[in-house]
Simulated scan of single mutants.
Amino acid sequence: MGELFEHSETPIVITERDRVTIANLAARGLLGSHILGQDARMALRQPEAVRLLDRDADGSAIVRGLSRRNDIWRINRKKLDDQLAVVEFVNKTAEADIARAHTDFVANASHELRTPLAAIIGYVETLSEDAGNLETKTAERFLDTIQREAKRLQNLVSDLMSLSRIEAEKHDLPSARIELSGLVESAARDGAGNERLDRLDVATSGQFFIRGDAQQLEQLVRNLVDNALKYGHADQPVTIRLHPRGDNRVRLTVTDRGDGIAAEHIPHLTRRFYRTDPGRSRASGGTGLGLAIVKHIVERHRGRLDVESTVGEGTRVTVTLPLDSEELGN
C-alpha cells in the first residue's frame, strides 16, 4: 500500500488505530518524516483535525496553518476497516487566494465605477432641478465635469474588458508574425496624440520579427507611452527605444523624466487599481489598470517586464520579447 501511494502528489497517510503507519513522500514533505509511528493527533496538532480523528468515522475538516501560516487544507478521512483509515490532505490555499483576489477585484472595480457615476448623477440632477436658475458659465462647467467623468467611466469599462480578454487568452501563444519596429512607432504616436507628439523621441535599430498579437502589442505600447507622458515633466521628452537584446530577443524601453517612483511602490505597480498617487492618477484620467494590462500582454508573449525608477529623475519601463525563430534562421 505504501508503494501504491508513495509518489502521489497528494499527501496521504495510512493510520492503524490512529497511529501513522504509512506516509507517502508528499505527506512526509508536508508534516515531516518524524510522523511515522506517531499518534496522528499528535502529528497534526490541529483542533479541527483532532476532532475529526476522535469521531472515529468518515468525514472531513478544514485546517489552517498546517505547514505555513496562511495555508488552507481540507483533510479527508476514510475508514478501511475497524483499525485502518486513509487520511488525505487537499491543498485549498490557491483556490482561496483566487477567490479572495476575485472578491478584491470586484470590490475595487465597484468603487472605481461608483465614483464617476456619483459625479455624473449629481451634476445631472442639479442641472435638471435648477436649469432655469443656473448661469451659462456654471452650466457649462457642470457639463464639462459630466463629460470628463463619462469619459473616465468609458475608459475604465474599456480597460476592464481588455483585461478580461487578455486574461482569457493568456495560455494561447500568438501565432501571427509581426514586424515590431513599425508597430512601435505607429502605436507610440497614437498613444501620444497630436497634442503631445512633440515630446516623443522614438528610435529603432532595424527590423525585428516576433510572434505576437498586433492589437495587444499596440495596446502595450500605447499604455506605456501614455503613462510616461502623464507622469513625465511636461517640458521633457519621453524616449522610446527598440534594439536587440543578445542574439534571440528584442528589448523595448520607454523612459520618462519626471518625479520618479519610490522603491517601495515598484513591486506593486502591476496590481490592478494600484496607484502611487491616486489623486493625480484620477485627475489625469488614469484607470489604475494600464500596467496590469501590460503585464498580462507581456506574459502571453512569453516576455519579461522590468520597471526601474529614481526619485527626482524619472522612470524606465523595459519589455523584453523573444524573436521569431524564422528571424533567427532556425
Rank of each mutant, 00 (worst) to 15 (best):
A234R: 13
D235I: 04
D235P: 03
P237I: 00
P237A: 02
T239K: 14
T239M: 07
T239C: 02
T239Q: 09
I240Q: 00
I240T: 01
L242C: 03
L242G: 01
L242V: 13
P244F: 14
R245E: 13
G246N: 09
G246A: 09
D247A: 03
D247T: 05
D247V: 00
N248D: 15
R249Q: 13
V250P: 04
V250G: 06
R251T: 07
L252F: 11
T253L: 00
T253P: 10
V254W: 06
V254I: 05
T255E: 04
D256V: 00
D256G: 02
G260C: 10
I261M: 12
I261L: 14
A262G: 13
A263I: 10
A263S: 15
E264T: 00
E264C: 03
E264V: 04
E264I: 05
E264D: 13
H265I: 08
H265K: 09
I266D: 00
I266L: 14
I266V: 15
H268W: 12
H268T: 05
L269F: 01
L269V: 12
T270Y: 11
R271W: 11
R271N: 15
R271I: 05
R272W: 07
R272K: 13
R272L: 13
F273P: 01
R275L: 11
T276S: 09
T276A: 12
T276G: 06
D277F: 03
D277E: 11
D277T: 08
P278R: 05
G279S: 14
G279Y: 09
G279I: 06
R280F: 09
R280S: 12
R280K: 10
S281C: 14
R282M: 07
R282V: 11
R282S: 10
A283R: 06
A283E: 15
G285C: 03
G286T: 01
T287S: 14
G290L: 02
A292I: 02
I293Y: 01
I293N: 02
